[in-house]
Design a protein around this nucleic acid. Structure first.
Lengths: 209, 209
DNA sequence: CCTTGCCCCGACCGATCGTTCGGTTGCACC
DNA sequence: GGTGCAACCGAACGATCGGTCGGGGCAAGG
C-alpha cells in the first residue's frame, strides 16, 4: 500500500504509528498511563495534539499496541523449541533466561504491561493474556518439581509467584547502557542462577548456554 | 481538643481522616492513584465530594498519609533490636522476615508506595525515602557477603535488587483471608527460605524464629 | 499548471478534573 | 432555648481532559 515501485521511503523526519508509539511508551512509563495527557504526548513528540490522531485512533490504541508488543514477545518464548522439548527443568531454565532477555529487549513495553490496572477493556484484556502466560510457566515449574529435579523450599505456587516477582522487578531498575546492547548477559545469568538456587536446584550452577 | 471530660467518643458512624483514608487507599489500589477521581472516592465513601474536604486537605494528602504509613512501618523494622545487633546474616534474615510481615500488615499502603511514579512533590519525596530504605538493606547484605556468610551467585548489588523484587511482588498477589490474620506465617517462611537460598546461604534452612 | 493525498495545525467540543463556596442539619453544652 | 461547631450537602469554579473539525502547506504525479 502506498509508495509503489522501488525504494523511496528513505529519510524519516515524519511520524509513523510505530515511531509515535516509541515516544508514547516512553512518556507513559515516565508519568504513568493515566497520568499522561495527549498534551504531554504532543509536546514530547513535537507535533500538535490533533496531529497524533492522524496516526493512531487515540490514547488507548497506543496502550494496546504497546502491551501487545510485550505480550507477543513473552508468548514467543514459549513457542521456541527449547521451551517445548527436553527435561522440564531445562525448559524452565530456558524460559527464565529468554523471558529475562525479552523483558530487557522490550523493557518499556513490558513495564507498561506490568503496571496495567484493569480500568478499561484494553487493560483487562492485557491482564488476562498476562495471566495465561504466568500459568504456562507455573505448569513448567510444577513438572520440574514433580519429576524431582527441583525441590523449592516453599510450595510450587508460591515459588512461581516469587520467581515472577524477581524477574519482573527488572523493569523497576534495569536501564540498558545508551550505546550498547539492550540485553546485559551478566544480569541474565545472575537472574537465572539466583532463580534456580531459590527454587532449590541441587548442584547450584545451571547448565551453560 | 474537643469532647472534654471522660469517654464519650464511643459509636463511630461518621468519618475521621483515618477511616476515610482506609476507603481512599482501597480505591487508589483498585483504580490507580491517577485513575481515581474525587467523585470515585465520594461514591466509595458514601458521602459527597465536598464533604471529603472537611476531613482532609485534598487528594494528595490522602496519598501522603498512605505512603507515610507504609514507610514508617518499613523503617520501624530497621530500628528493632534484632535488626541492629548480631551477625549480619541474622540481622538480614530478621529484616527480610519483618519486612515481609509489615508488607502484609500494611498491604494496601505499601502497594500504593510501590506504584508511586514521581509526578508530584509528594511522590518524589516518597521515592526518596524508599530509596534510603533499600540502601540500608543493601548495606546489610553487603556485610553478610563480606564476612563470608553469604555467597550469592550474582554480585550483591544485583542480588539486593532481585531480593526486593521478590519480596515486593507480594503486593501483586497476596490477599489476606477475610476472617483471619493479615499475616500468613507460612508465606513469610517461604519467602525467607527462598530468599536466603537464592542468596547462597550454605546449609539451606534459616534459623528458626 | 493543476490535482491529489499525506502530514500537520489552531480552534473548539462536551465532559470531567480537583477544589471552593455558601449554606443546612443536628447534637452537645451552657 | 439559644449558641457553637462538626459533619455534611448541592452548585459551581477555572482548568484540563480525550477527541473532533475544517483547513493549510507542500511534495509528487500528471
Amino acid at each position: 500500500m502506498g509508495t509503489a515501485a522501488g525504494e523511496r521511503t528513505a529519510r524519516r523526519d515524519t511520524y509513523t504509528p510505530q515511531t509515535l508509539l516509541e515516544v508514547a511508551v516512553r512518556v507513559f512509563n515516565e508519568r504513568g498511563y493515566d497520568g499522561t495527557s495527549m498534551e504531554h504526548l504532543s509536546r514530547a513528540a513535537g507535533i500538535s495534539k490533533s496531529s497524533i490522531y492522524h496516526h493512531v485512533r487515540g490514547k488507548e490504541e497506543l496502550l494496546r499496541r504497546a502491551v501487545s508488543h510485550a505480550l507477543d514477545g513473552l508468548f514467543g518464548v514459549l513457542e521456541e523449541p527449547a521451551a517445548r522439548e527436553g527435561r522440564a527443568v531445562d525448559r524452565l531454565a530456558h524460559v527464565i533466561r529468554r523471558t529475562t532477555e525479552v523483558l530487557m529487549e522490550r523493557l518499556p513495553h513490558v513495564t507498561l504491561l506490568l503496571r496495567v490496572r484493569g480500568n478499561t477493556e484494553t487493560e483487562r484484556w492485557a491482564l488476562e493474556r498476562r495471566r495465561k502466560f504466568d500459568q504456562r510457566v507455573a505448569e513448567l515449574l510444577r513438572q520440574a518439581v514433580a519429576d524431582g529435579t527441583l525441590r523449592p523450599g516453599a510450595d510450587p505456587r508460591l515459588a512461581t509467584r516469587l520467581l515472577f516477582g524477581m524477574i519482573n522487578s527488572l523493569v523497576e531498575w534495569y536501564r540498558p547502557h545508551p550505546e550498547g546492547p539492550r540485553v546485559a548477559p551478566e544480569i541474565v545469568e545472575g537472574v537465572l542462577t539466583t532463580a534456580l538456587a531459590g527454587l532449590g536446584l541441587p548442584g547450584g550452577a545451571p547448565p551453560a548456554r
